[in-house]
Simulated assay, not measured.
Amino acid sequence: MTADFQLDRPASEARIVVAMSGGVDSSVVAALAARTGAEVIGVTLQLYDHGMAVQKPGSCCAGQDIYDARSVCDRLGIAHYVFDYESRFREGVIDRFADEYMNGRTPIPCVRCNQGVKFTDLLSLARELGADCLATGHYVRRVAGPKRVELHRGADPARDQSYFLFATTQDQLDFLRFPLGGMPKSAVREIAKDISLTVAEKPDSQDICFVPNGDYASVVKKVRPEAGDGGEIVDRAGNILGLHKGLIHYTVGQRRGLEIGGQPEPLYVVRLEPESRRVVVGPKSALAVRAARLGEINWLGGKETSDRLTAKVRSMARPAPVRFDGESIHFDAPEYGVAPGQAAVLYLGDRVMGGGWIEETFAAELETF
């Protein structure tokens, strides 16, 4: 199988830099790039300590994964470079992740990583290396539109990663390539098997690579020890219902783990108040949101407008019909579990029009819809 890297000159004259995490996706991208006849360079960013990360199953960009990336490059006969970005990753992603939880928000570090270390620093490195493009293993599609290059969902809905790439700028998109965007994961693994790559059966990395075993609270407390300070669990009227062991254990929409008994109906986390360290709970109806104000908006749609936009407010959420006024999204029907700190990504069909970070939500009464 071949892939179109959308090069502006003959492949024999081109240079492709491939972002390699050590997993099967980026390894197959490197193999497909090598098949074009272009000069290919694999680049891996070391994002945290080798010795610590090598013990984490499913981590990326450290330890065993760097070794795997180098082994793949040796197998393909291409150059491989490792760059140390540990301090940059810690400041721009891990520290920010901890601060978001401290502020009662629900962070998405994978977007921040793509926004900073991967699509800013790595892209700059690729240009310094004289590359014609930077190719990655993300499951999204880069489509040449009538006016500009567009970002579209991956063809395989189960693998689509467009939600995590909404902050990609037009300038970055012009330089990036996503050769796996039109493939299902099964086809990617078949390619890896056919060319005997050692990573063909390697498990996918976990979403948050620096959080071992999904215990994000321990990571936050290590970075910000005060994150373990407890407080009160209250209802919307301010009545104390119980105590908690730190805001970092709760997110908007959460039901489990509240440990509040004797209530007439199930209670959910409605909001977090970092100043008073309070967890505010209420019935499911209190989670209904009619609108959300966005910050740090990245717009890829040019001047086009449409009343047929949809928005995803969580990576696994079903796109919901919305109206976008340039600052806020207004849902056609109530949306639940919308939390400050998450991203809202706007689509027109399969095309990513842009998105932003949810700064504030506005409650809805169900009967108004």
Rank of each mutant, 00 (worst) to 15 (best):
D4L: 13
F5Q: 11
L7W: 05
P10A: 11
A11Y: 09
E13K: 15
R15E: 09
I16E: 04
G22T: 08
D25W: 07
D25K: 04
S27D: 01
V29T: 01
V29P: 01
L32K: 06
L32P: 09
A34G: 03
R35E: 15
V40P: 09
V43K: 04
V43P: 04
V43T: 08
T44Q: 02
L45H: 00
Q46G: 12
L47D: 13
Y48T: 05
D49R: 02
V54N: 14
V54S: 15
G58F: 03
G58M: 05
C60A: 15
G63S: 07
G63R: 09
D65Q: 15
S71R: 14
G77Y: 10
Y81Q: 09
D84P: 04
Y85P: 04
S87C: 08
R88G: 04
R88F: 12
F89W: 02
E91V: 13
R96E: 14
R96A: 09
F97Q: 00
F97I: 02
A98L: 03
E100R: 13
E100A: 15
N103Q: 12
R105Y: 03
N114H: 14
K118F: 08
F119C: 00
T120K: 14
S124H: 15
S124P: 04
S124L: 14
L125M: 14
R127A: 14
E128P: 01
L129V: 08
G130N: 05
L134D: 08
V140M: 10
V140T: 13
V143G: 09
A144N: 14
G154Y: 09
D156Y: 02
R159K: 15
Q161L: 05
S162R: 10
Y163Q: 03
L165W: 03
F166G: 00
T169E: 07
Q170C: 01
L173W: 01
F178D: 00
F178A: 08
D194T: 14
L197C: 12
V199E: 05
A200L: 03
Q206H: 10
D207Y: 01
I208W: 12
S218V: 06
G230P: 01
E232G: 04
E232A: 14
D235Q: 11
R236N: 07
G238I: 03
I240A: 02
I240M: 00
L241A: 07
G242D: 03
L247D: 03
Y250V: 00
V252P: 02
G257M: 10
Q263D: 06
Q263M: 15
P264F: 06
P266G: 11
P266V: 07
R271T: 14
E273V: 13
R277W: 11
R278G: 02
L287R: 06
L294A: 02
L294D: 02
D307A: 12
K312I: 04
P319F: 02
A320D: 10
P321R: 13
V322Q: 01
R323P: 06
R323C: 02
D332I: 07
A333T: 12
A333P: 00
G341E: 04
A343D: 10
A344F: 05
L346I: 08
L346M: 00
L346Q: 01
R351T: 03
V352G: 00
M353I: 11
M353G: 05
I358Q: 12
I358V: 15
E359F: 09
E359P: 07
E360Q: 14
A364S: 12
E367F: 13
F369G: 07
